[in-house]
Write a protein that binds this DNA or RNA. Structure first.
Length: 354
DNA sequence: CCCCATGATTCATG
DNA sequence: CATGAATCATGGGG
């Protein structure tokens, strides 16, 4: 069957004669062997027309006979020509890429969510938001919610990729199958390579629409996952009493300079066992201190009582509070307000003094 | 219900 | 990038 293209090609030059031939067939004034040829072609056409009425074996034999007929290539080309002019022109090239925009959107989203992107890089915005310091930072035992999210996302990615691959493979298989079929059939039916090509295009479009469905549902899954995990992060959960206790203790015992270092934040977070809805201890602690500073500054009077309470507390509990020494300028007794710490406090309360 | 304390987010700044 | 400031959104208490 693969001799077909070669045959057609070698005879392709003769295509220009077709109209003449057709004319000859009609008026029958073709010369000495005109009648014979006409008869010949009539026979062939008749055989083709009735080929479906025959038994399978008969048809097979007839097919072979036809295929070996000397007129076959020319006739094939003529029929292809006719078919092209009638059938194919009807559904011309209407291959518009209308849903391309949506496909792009889906692709972008999948990429952004880290589903279709680099394998485990986590370079996506969302994954980064979820994973916080996953890339370079310390391992940080994150909240269970977070690892849950990651696990689910990985699962989705796995499914997505296997499905995609499956579709890809099925598409290829189906395409080769159809191509083989059409090539085989082109021995007896006027199917030009161009038409096969077109058919392949149709198949591919069909499969990519299936792919788009897959992408769509994957996107949906990711969206649901997001709303279940990431957006829950936005919900505020109040710390328990102990946590605020610890944080306040630190805050008021470092009132002169309440800017915990990164390590201090980490440690505070751990001590408070902040597992509530946040990825990173330090981030939550930073939030807390940020809010605390600004709210304290805004209305010192309101916090006075609290401040006194914690001052008393630390004064009793520790004689040497600055054990951690994270604050280089912190005096040994933070709440005694030495001149140094007063200056420091003025700085963070009111900015750099003149 | 409303109110407000409060954790989180956003945006500007330097 | 850390902080300040404003703002959002929620949970708990009246």
């Amino acid at each position: 069957m693969d001799e077909q293209p070669r045959l057609m090609h070698s005879h392709g030059v003769g295509m220009a004669r077709h109209p003449g031939m057709a004319q000859n067939m009609q008026d029958g004034t073709g010369g000495t062997d005109g009648d014979g040829r006409k008869q010949d072609i009539g026979d062939i056409l008749q055989q083709i027309m009735t080929i479906t009425d025959q038994s399978l074996d008969e048809a097979q034999a007839r097919k072979h006979a036809l295929n070996c007929h000397r007129m076959k290539p020319a006739l094939f080309n003529v029929l292809c020509d006719i078919k092209e002019k009638t059938v194919l022109s009807i559904r011309g090239t209407q291959e518009d890429d209308a849903p391309d925009a949506q496909l792009m959107r889906l692709d972008n989203m999948l990429l952004a969510e880290g589903v279709s992107g680099p394998e485990k890089g986590g370079g996506s915005a969302a994954a980064a938001a979820a994973a916080a310091a996953a890339g370079g930072g310390v391992g940080q035992d994150n909240s269970t919610e977070h690892s849950d999210y990651r696990a689910k996302l990985t699962q989705i990615r796995g499914i997505y990729h296997t499905e995609l691959e499956k579709y890809e493979q099925a598409c290829n298989e189906f395409t080769t199958h159809v191509m083989n079929l059409l090539r085989e059939q082109s021995r007896t039916r006027p199917i030009s390579p161009k038409e096969i090509e077109r058919m392949v295009g149709i198949i591919h479009r069909k499969f990519s629409s299936i792919q788009m469905q897959l992408k769509q549902s994957t996107c949906e899954a990711v969206m649901i996952l997001r709303s279940r995990f990431l957006d829950a992060r936005r919900k505020r959960r109040n710390f328990n009493k102990q946590a605020t206790e610890i944080l306040n203790e630190y805050f008021y015992s470092h009132l002169s300079n309440p800017y915990p270092s990164e390590e201090a934040k980490e440690e505070l977070g751990k001590k408070c066992s902040i597992t509530v809805s946040q990825v990173h201890y330090a981030a939550t602690v930073s939030n807390w201190f940020g809010n605390k500073r600004i709210r304290y500054k805004k209305n010192i009077g309101k916090f006075q009582e609290e401040a006194n309470m914690y001052a008393a507390k630390t004064a009793v509990s520790a004689t040497n509070v600055s054990a951690h020494g994270s604050q280089a300028n912190s005096p040994s007794t933070p709440n005694s307000y030495g001149t140094k710490s007063v200056l420091l406090m003025l700085v963070w309360l009111h900015g750099i003094p003149n």
